[in-house]
């Protein structure tokens, strides 16, 4: 993967919607026209949760509408910063730096993009899915996992996914509406969900594909590191190209402080410390895990 030198905008963004969901999850929509106009799947926003805080917080962009000028993120309260963000109401203003980071790259020979999202790693998969919709040459499948209630109402999918066990039918309605097959996984026994992890359902799906389809699979993943490690291992076993979207504590978000690095490997040897903010957040899985 390469870093991308696109312009970054500092905007005073207005909160237009802020919806509280189950398990302290929130969807925040901001009016930030420049960020919305330039955002691509994989990019993130660096949001000032409170003016007194030294560090902003990075949030993957879930959706954007360049024409309407809004960007949307999904987050869960995990600390003081996100708790302060959760207190922001419609009409509030907050400083927003973005869009930051590189983007997912779909290879030319990809026919079956496999999008894997775990927990708060779901948002960039939704953004990527939106960019794939309506492409007749692609047959994407999104597998989303969560151990807390999903941040959207689930429903049985209207889209056939013949290589997924037929009892696994729960889907994300938005993706269904876009014509993109999705399936859900959880260990919590939610109806219609696969009982297991995203990489386990992914492997079952992959093994059911015919050989030609298998050759067109490219994997994109975002979620907790343990999930990404498992996904990377699955991809290594089957020699699948895989891009992972990472998160790390971050200060400047423009590559100036080298605070957000991740060890980067080539041929199983650590050769560099890459900055998640500008060298990523999207990396080839084999270089990280």
């Amino acid at each position: 993967m390469e870093s991308e030198q696109n312009p970054i905008f500092e905007e005073c963004a207005r909160v237009t919607h802020h919806d509280a969901l189950a398990a302290q999850q929130f969807v925040l929509r901001l009016s930030a026209p420049e960020c919305a106009r330039h955002a691509k799947a994989g990019n993130f926003l660096h949001l000032q949760c409170d003016p007194q805080r030294a560090l902003r917080r990075p949030f993957s962009i879930m959706r954007c509408d360049p024409a309407a000028g809004w960007v949307e993120v999904l987050y869960k309260i995990v600390g003081q910063g996100s708790a302060e963000l959760a207190a922001r109401k419609s009409g509030d203003m907050l400083q927003c730096l973005g869009p930051v980071g590189n983007t997912f790259r779909v290879h030319e020979n990809t026919t079956h993009p496999l999008l894997l999202g775990g927990g708060v790693g779901i948002p960039p998969m939704i953004f990527l899915a939106e960019t794939l919709r309506g492409n007749p040459g692609l047959h994407p499948l999104a597998i989303l996992g969560s151990e807390i209630p999903f941040p959207f109402p689930t429903r049985p999918s209207k889209i056939l996914a013949p290589d997924v066990p037929k009892e696994v039918i729960a889907a994300m309605p938005l993706l269904d509406d876009w014509g993109i097959a999705s399936r859900l996984t959880s260990l919590q026994g939610y109806p219609g969900c696969f009982h297991g992890y995203v990489h386990e359902l992914a492997e079952r799906w992959f093994l059911n594909l015919d050989h030609a389809a298998q050759k067109g699979v490219q994997v994109f993943a975002c979620g907790p590191n343990r999930m990404l490690e498992a996904v990377s291992e699955f991809c290594r076993r089957h020699a699948l190209p895989c891009q992972v979207c990472l998160e790390e504590y971050m200060a400047c978000a423009v590559g100036g402080c080298a605070g957000c690095v991740v060890p980067y490997r080539e041929n199983n040897r650590m050769v560099a410390m890459k900055r998640v903010c500008v060298d990523g957040p999207v990396f080839n899985a084999a270089s990280i895990f």
Binding site: A54, M250, A258, C260, V262
Partner: peptide
């Protein structure tokens, strides 16, 4: 120099800690 292993940053009251390690 590759510098220190992550995490390299921690937010603190009215500030932050860093340990980049001269990467």
């Amino acid at each position: 120099r590759l510098g220190n292993a992550p995490h390299r940053l921690a937010e603190t009251t009215d500030g932050m800690l860093n340990a980049i390690g001269l990467q």
